[in-house]
Design a protein around this nucleic acid. Structure first.
Lengths: 338, 338
DNA sequence: GGACGCTACTAAACCGGTTTAGTGTGACGC
DNA sequence: GCGTCACACTAAACCGGTTTAGTAGCGTCC
């Protein structure tokens, strides 16, 4: 038995298909009684309007896109996307929207991807993640007229709204926690400085030190990967005056860094304190357990989705409170060595 | 400027829209010369057929679905999906198909999800992951008439094709590697026995021991999470006669297990050897680096996507060779203690 | 009692493609 | 020289909704 169509419902209810459409979309033009009969008939027949047909007639795709621009091999360890997508989906599904995923090997291909999504009308809007300091995507999307929401800290002059937990307070809390423990020389392993969240976390670290009247500590730019995090850690530990604590821009690098320390026979936290960022599942289960900053990525996805739908419908932005970041103190931080 | 439609192209090329459609789909019925002119005109106008309209007229969604049935919070650490999706996408995009993602909190909701995707005609087929030993989804999908490909080891009597790297040789290789190192008492931390890949890996472990003439070692059922992996490890180490090596069903549990050992002051690999499964990014960057089994998840995604498209088009299955699993020996395994 | 307006509803156009039935033309066979 | 067939192509129907223009019926007002 093929799916029933609006015609079947109309016939069964003894009305025209126009009436069925009106009834289903809560539009005036049908009597209360007729509307009830139509809805009841639809229920009996198990009819749901087909998004395919709807999409064509309302000239909307009823879907939004997320383009992940990374080589698939690098994606594998990223703990961000699965939870983020979970949040996004929970919001979208309530509004009859679907999430379309695209994975492209590198950033250049991402432009292509957006152009295609737009040209084919596959989506009504997109998320932009991992914003660069000098990112060309917002402009491209503006040119294409494709609504977008930037995921993560945005840029002041940005064309599109940015939705994200402010990551600075979390880093600040981590630095303050270390200062309280007596650390005076606190290093940082940063994300790429061409990425907004790489820079923003580094600034938070530097500012917290400055506010405490401490000299800026040593820092190394890395790329959020375990490999580079390990290398950066070696660099910091090789300094003539190595830091007694290191603040990492994410958990992956922090865990890799902790292993480097362990391999060198350094005791964590006895001789070196370490903090991460993100509170990945593994953070609580490495040895010692990682002190890190937990962020509500799922809620973040929900908020981003909601904002994008508002943008698409040209509605006003509503407030959507996000859980602020929270410092989770575990075993990888301890009193500064004397 | 709104997107051009097929009508614009037809008018500009001086033909009917039927001709444009024929030309674009490589169907006979238009002369070579006309076809060339049409294609050229389309190129000039920047026209691409709208998947929306196509979907409606060919009664296809031109999209496939992937339902992830886990609480978003548990998804966060799963390194499988991002690479898998990367592979899937790379195949789909070549055929004008898109990937629709759905995340539902638990397994029951997954049924709902499939029913909706099917009822709304959002997708032409779906992937089924994390198959249960007694899984009701294949039957549901058969009932709905929604083509499906099972991702991972399938079941013999399964209705749908299964695509996946056979995980048994990898586990076997790990066990044999340990035996070669002199281990005689080799434990296992398994995935849930109600999941096919939990059971299949445990069987591979048991069989490898049996083939070597060794007694079956102790094993504990776990659930692939770091938390449960740590608990399982404690259980094994608390035995009066603890194993000298443990084979874990995935990296996450193995890394958590390694931390448990470290916390107890056990030297890895001096007193305890450990192997993982999956070769996640972090595996190479923990201390000691984890000996594990690497699988080609991206290729796997590609293969699954290809098979699903074949199924949708009712084409014959083509062979698609996958890189077999490979044992990556690192520092977490060593000679058995004497 | 005719003009007017309102409500409830229908018929038909439309979204942008694909597909089917049908038409005109030239080549070919006999 | 005429029937026939293949070929290139067009017109129109169709997919399943939404939306617009139009109509019937009824109450109201002057």
């Amino acid at each position: 038995m093929p799916r029933p169509t609006i015609n079947d419902v109309a016939r069964a209810a003894g009305v025209s298909k126009g009436a069925v459409s009106l009834a289903f979309n809560n539009r005036p033009g049908v009597g209360e009684e007729t509307r009830a009969r139509i809805l009841e008939t639809a229920r009996e027949l198990g009819w749901t309007p087909s998004p395919r047909a709807r999409a064509l007639s309302v000239s909307r795709a009823l879907a939004v896109g997320l383009v992940m621009a990374r080589p698939p091999e690098t994606l594998r360890a990223d703990p961000f996307f699965p939870s983020f997508i979970g949040g996004v989906e929970s919001e979208l599904s309530q509004h009859g929207y679907a999430l379309l995923l695209q994975v492209v090997p590198e950033h250049d291909a991402e432009h292509q991807s957006y152009r295609r999504l737009s040209a084919e009308g596959r989506v009504d809007g997109v998320f932009v993640t991992d914003l660069f300091v000098d990112d060309s995507r917002p402009a491209l999307l503006a040119e294409l007229g494709l609504p977008a929401v930037i995921v993560g800290p945005g840029l002041p002059e940005a064309y599109w709204p940015a939705v994200g937990v402010d990551d600075q307070p979390g880093i600040t809390a981590a630095v303050e926690h270390l200062i309280e423990l007596g650390h005076r020389r606190i290093g940082h392993v940063a994300g790429p400085s061409e990425m907004v969240h790489g820079t923003s976390r580094r600034e938070a670290w530097a500012n917290a030190l400055a506010r405490a009247g401490l000299p800026e500590g040593p820092w190394v730019e890395s790329d959020f990967s375990a490999e580079a995090g390990a290398a950066a850690t070696r660099q910091l530990l090789d300094l003539v005056d190595p830091p007694s604590a290191i603040v990492y821009a994410n958990d992956l690098m922090a865990i890799a860094g902790m292993s480097v320390a362990a391999a060198r026979g350094l005791d964590v936290p006895g001789q070196l304190s370490i903090t991460g960022f993100e509170d990945t599942e593994l953070a609580a289960h490495v040895q010692p357990p990682l002190t890190t900053v937990s962020t509500d990525v799922t809620g973040w996805g929900r908020a981003a989705a909601r904002r994008l739908l508002e943008l698409i419908d040209q509605r006003e932005a509503t407030e959507f409170p996000l859980h602020p970041t929270r410092l989770v103190v575990r075993g990888s931080t301890g009193p500064a060595p004397v």
